[in-house]
């Protein structure tokens, strides 16, 4: 077991390769499902579940899947786990499913999952790939929860469903508008903190990456 690689994989998703603030992938659920802390957390955990298991199976099958038809194969593996999440959530937490179900269905095309399949799981051992899924999923969940806390406070004046006295609730339709603007301001704040950190960092390897400015034309294959 290579310790440096293990550490890099475990911590990469949280900060250096954060899927929301640095890689800027999977922006649709980030904007649409972060209306409250609970919804954000559920969306993050659902994505993390799919990410861990799709990474594991793609990594196990990496020598079997032919290169030319890899994308359809990945999609079949990913959608299997999405259907499991969908069925379970629909059966046991129907309220949540009616709130964020549209975006649970769309986890299949979430670019974080395909990007990790393509650039990590298809060329790394199963254990590392699972760990990568855990750390990417945690990074995504933390980012969603941070946005969810801010939006829930602005829209409903509450924290995790508990009303904070003195802050009135806003019209539900108006609160949906906050998605883009809160995400934009949080990313600017992230960039601001990273720029401050980088200006102070003494050694080059201590510096952190900013949010990338452009979409890559295609996901890089490892």
């Amino acid at each position: 077991m290579d310790k440096a690689k293990l550490k890099e994989t475990m911590l990469g998703g949280l900060l250096r390769n954060n899927p929301t603030f640095v890689l800027v992938l999977g922006t649709c659920p980030t904007i649409a499902t972060t209306t409250s802390l609970f919804n954000s957390f559920a969306m993050g955990v659902a994505t993390m579940f799919v990410l861990i298991f799709s990474n594991l199976f793609i990594s196990l099958l990496r020598r079997v899947i032919p290169d030319r038809v890899r994308i359809p194969c990945y999609i079949v593996i990913i959608s299997t786990f999405v259907i499991i999440v969908q069925r379970v959530m629909n059966r046991f937490i129907p309220d949540l499913y009616s709130a964020i179900g549209t975006f649970i269905d769309l986890i299949v095309v979430n670019c974080i999952i395909l990007a990790r399949a393509e650039s990590y799981a298809s060329c790394n051992k199963p254990l590392y790939s699972m760990l990568d899924g855990v750390s990417m999923g945690l990074g995504f969940t933390c980012a969603l929860c941070m946005i969810g806390i801010v939006r829930e406070f602005l829209a409903a004046g509450s924290f995790a469903g508990m009303a904070i006295p003195g802050f009135p609730a806003m019209d539900a339709a108006a609160s949906n508008m906050f998605g883009f603007i809160v995400f934009g301001c949080m990313m600017a704040l992230f960039n601001f903190l990273v720029q401050k950190w980088n200006a102070r960092a003494k050694r080059a390897e201590k510096t952190l990456p900013l949010a990338r400015e452009e979409s890559p034309a295609e996901v890089t294959k490892c």
């Binding site: 883009f180 603007i181 934009g184 990313m187 960039n191 720029q195 949010a211 990338r212 400015e213 452009e214």
Partner: peptide, 11 residues
């Protein structure tokens, strides 16, 4: 500077 790129586009 921190708004350049994605943040200003989101706003």
């Amino acid at each position: 500077k921190c708004f350049k790129g994605f943040p200003i586009t989101l706003i």
